[in-house]
């Protein structure tokens, strides 16, 4: 398990790890200070002993209906080290009306789409993300559907068709 990695990380980057606990299967988790997540990721990726280079995934959790729901949102990250053959589980807590977390895309390119996914479905902004657009839903979508206060059967307004830019229709047409 990745206890060693979290120990080393907590030792090197003092104050970054806010809380540590184990889940039901005994796997260790680390709650990271959100302003230092990029620094932590950089360390985990480049440290020669750890080498957590494979970015598995990231996702959000809306803790609205869970017992301790302040701050309301969590962003979870999973990394894998191929050399140590273990995964590490990190978590960032963030609240507020417009939650913001520093993006880790500058460290891991693989984080790009996952962060877009979290923005799309939870409305958590990733500052410093190169291209933070919605990924599965369309730009005109209102709200963020995986938030617990988004109703299951909510309807969306109809949106007008977007004009297509840069379309060359070939010779002989009216050029519309």
């Amino acid at each position: 398990m990745s206890k060693f990695a979290i120990d080393k990380m907590a030792e090197r980057i003092s104050g970054a790890v806010i809380e540590r606990y184990e889940d039901r299967t005994g796997a260790p988790w680390a709650v990271i200070d959100k302003d230092r997540i990029r620094e932590v990721m950089q360390f985990l990726k480049t440290d020669s002993e750890l080498q957590f280079r494979l970015f598995l995934s990231a996702d959000g959790v809306d803790r609205l209906y869970l017992p301790d729901n302040d701050p309301r949102f969590e962003v979870v990250y999973f990394l894998r080290s191929l050399t140590r053959n273990e995964e590490i589980r990190l978590k960032v807590r963030v609240g507020g009306e417009h939650p913001e977390v520093p993006s880790v895309t500058p460290v891991f390119q693989g984080a790009n789409w996952w962060e877009r996914f979290v923005w799309d479905f939870y409305g958590i902004r990733f500052t410093g993300h190169p291209d933070l657009r919605r990924i599965l839903l369309y730009e005109e979508f209102k709200g963020h559907p995986l938030r617990k206060d988004y109703p299951l059967r909510a309807r969306q307004p109809l949106v007008p068709e977007r004009p297509i830019q840069d379309l060359y229709r070939g010779p002989g047409t009216s050029g519309v």
């Binding site: 598995l56 996702d59 209906y65 979870v76 693989g110 789409w113």
Partner: peptide, 16 residues
Amino acid sequence: PYKVHVRAPGFPILSG
């Protein structure tokens, strides 16, 4: 379930 996140293998691959 309170949350079910799936890490589909194709998702990061397509992003590459």
